[in-house]
Design a protein around this nucleic acid. Sequence first.
DNA 1: TCTCGTCGTGAATGCGTATTCATTGTTTGC
DNA 2: GCAAACAATGAATACGCATTCACGACGAGA
Lengths: 354, 354
Amino acid sequence: MVRRQARATSFDVAALAGVSQPVVSRAFTPNSRIAPETRERVLEAARKLNYVPNSIASSLTTKRTNIVALILGNLANPFYVHVLHAFSKRMQAEGRQLLVFTVDPGADSDEAILHVLKYQVDGVILTAAQLSTRMISICHDRGIPIVLFNRYIPGSDASGVRCDNAGGGRLIAEAFLAAGAKTFAMITGDPKGTTSQDRARGFVERLLEEGIKRSDIIEVEGQSSYEGAASAALSIFKDKSRPKPDALFGINDIMAMGAIDALRSRLGLSIPNDLMVGSFDDIPEARRAPYQLTTVRQPIDRMVEETLSILHLDEPDLPIERGIDRPIQGRLIWRNTIPVPPAYRFEKTDESGS
Amino acid sequence: MVRRQARATSFDVAALAGVSQPVVSRAFTPNSRIAPETRERVLEAARKLNYVPNSIASSLTTKRTNIVALILGNLANPFYVHVLHAFSKRMQAEGRQLLVFTVDPGADSDEAILHVLKYQVDGVILTAAQLSTRMISICHDRGIPIVLFNRYIPGSDASGVRCDNAGGGRLIAEAFLAAGAKTFAMITGDPKGTTSQDRARGFVERLLEEGIKRSDIIEVEGQSSYEGAASAALSIFKDKSRPKPDALFGINDIMAMGAIDALRSRLGLSIPNDLMVGSFDDIPEARRAPYQLTTVRQPIDRMVEETLSILHLDEPDLPIERGIDRPIQGRLIWRNTIPVPPAYRFEKTDESGS
DNA sequence: TCTCGTCGTGAATGCGTATTCATTGTTTGC
DNA sequence: GCAAACAATGAATACGCATTCACGACGAGA
C-alpha cells in the first residue's frame, strides 16, 4: 500500500448520499439552510467513507484557517510551558489549532513570522522573543493580529498583554522592606526583555523611594536560566568588595530556584534566615517543598483571556486593535522565603485562584 | 482599516515582474526550470509587494502541508517539554511546522486526531496519550504515518519509538541490589501507559531473579505527577503493616522529585542514607542540587531521529512503515541518590551525551 | 385559483498555487 | 548548415471546498 491514498472528498460523499456537493458542505456547516433529514443522510454517507472535511481547502475560500501561531522564546522557563498549556486548552476548546514555534532565547522571531505568514494564520501570539517592528507592520498590513504576551516593543503599535511587572517588582521590594532587609541584590534576566527590565526597575524605584542607596543594590545578570542564576548568585557572594545582601530578588521563579539551590548547596546559606528571596511568576513549581517561594503571581488565565479578546478571532472583520497595552495586576503570594512581617501575617495564604 | 486586506498573490507578482504566474511559482521552487535572472526579477517584485507564497493554497495541489501534528499528553512532566522542544527545533530546521495538541492525562486522543485529519498533516507524533486502534487505521488508510513516542498500543500495527523501559527498570533494580538494598518500593504512574508498566515490570523481574520476594516489593500508584508521587511516597511510609523499604524506584524523574521532597520535608528522611532512590528519564532538572538523581537517561535526540526516520516525511510515496518497534537502550547515570558501590565507582560520570 | 414569499437544492464559479503540456527560442551534434 | 535535443516560458487545468445565484416545490394569504 502506498501513501497518498485517495481520501474521500465532498463529491464522493455527495454521490453516495445522492445529493450535490454544496449540500455536503452545508451538512457540515452549522446554521446553514439544509433539511435536517438531508443532513443526516449526508453525515451517514460521510461516516461510511471516513470523510473528514479538508480544512486546507476550505481555508482557501473562507480565508480563515482557525490556526493561531504561538511563538515561544524560552521553554526552559516553566512559566512559558504553563502559558503554552493554557493557550492550548483554550484554543482547542474553541476548535482552533496552535502552530507552535520555538525561538532560541535572544534570537529574533522574524524568521518564524515569515513561516507564519505562509500559513495564513488567523493570529499570532508572541512570548519571550524579539520581533522587529517591520514584521509587525507586515502582519498588520496583511490583516493578521498579533499580541505580545508579557512583552512590548518600544516604538511599535503592536498590542500587548502583560503583567504589571514594575508594580510586581515594587511588591517584592515592599515585602523585603517590611521584613527589615537593608542591603539588596537582584538577579536579572534577558537584558533585551522588557519583562526583566520592568521588574528590576519597579524593584529599584521602590527601594530608592525608601531612601535605600543605589550602591546598596547589587545587580547581576543571570542569562535568564536556572543555571545562569545559580552562577550569578554565587558571584554575588564571592565578591568580597561589597557587603553581602540580606535580600535577593530573583527576576523570575526559575531563576530564584537556581539561586537558592546554589547558595544552599555551595555556600550553606539558609533561606530566609541568612538571605531572604523574592521572585516573580508563581509557577506551580514555586510551591514545592524545597522552595516555598514568596513570589508575585502572574494571573495567567486572565492574561490569556485578555490576549484572546485583543485578537478577537471571532470577528475577523473588525479592525486590528493596535497599540493596546493591558497591564494586569500581579499579587504577592507569601510563602517561606521572606519572613512574614506582623502586619502582613493575615495575608499568608497560598490558595489558588488568581 | 479593515482586516482581510488584499494580500499579494502570485498573479500580482507576475504582473509586476512581467512574467506569467507559473514563473512566480517556479521562482519560489528550488531546482525548477527557470532562468536565474528571471528568478531574481521575480523575487525582487515579490519583495516589493511583501509577497509570501500561500502554503495553504499550494498544499491543495501538492497534497503536502509540511505540518506535523504533535500530540502531548502530559506537559506537567518536563520530559515531554523537552521532547516538544527537540521536535520543534528539528522540524523548524527542516522547514516544517508543528501543530500542537494537548490531551488531558488519561483522556484518549481520538478527538485530537480528528482535528489533525482535517488539516491533512504529513505525519503524527503521539506522546503520552491514549489512542484507539480505529483511529490509527483511519490515519493509515489516509496515508498519514503515525509514530507512537515512548508508548505502544497492543494489538495495533502502529509504529513506535521508545526507550527500552523494561531494560531501564532492570538497570535501576541492579543498582539497588549492588548498593545492598533489601526491601523495595515503587511508585508507578499512569496504569494505562505502557511506559510505566514496562519500567515496573523490568524492575520487578530483575529483583525476582535475584531471589527477592514479591512481598518485599511495595507498589503504589502515583497519578503520574509530582504531587501524586509525593502523597504516594508518604502513604508507603505511613503503612505500619509493612516493613519500610530501603530503596524506592520512582517511575520517572518528576515523580521521584515529588517523592523525595515529600519524604524529606514531611518525614525528615535523608537520601540516600535512609532511603535510596532511583528513577528514569534524566531530565535536566534531575541534576539540580537538591536532587542529583541517579536515573536512567532516555536518549531523546536519538529517539527523535528514529521517529523522523519512521515518518520519512521526505519520501511520502514510500509505504507507511507499520508495526515497527524501536526500543533504544537507556543508560544509567550515577549521581547521588543511590550510594555508588565500589564496582561501579569508575562509572560515576555525569557528563552529557546520550 | 393565483401570486408571492420561503425553503431546499444544484450548477457554476472562485480561492492561490503547482503541474502538465505545448510553444517558442537556443544550443548541440554530426 | 540542418535536424535534433534542450531550456525557458505561458496557457490551461486541477486541487477540495464555500458561496452565489437561479430554480422548482410548496404553503400562505388574497
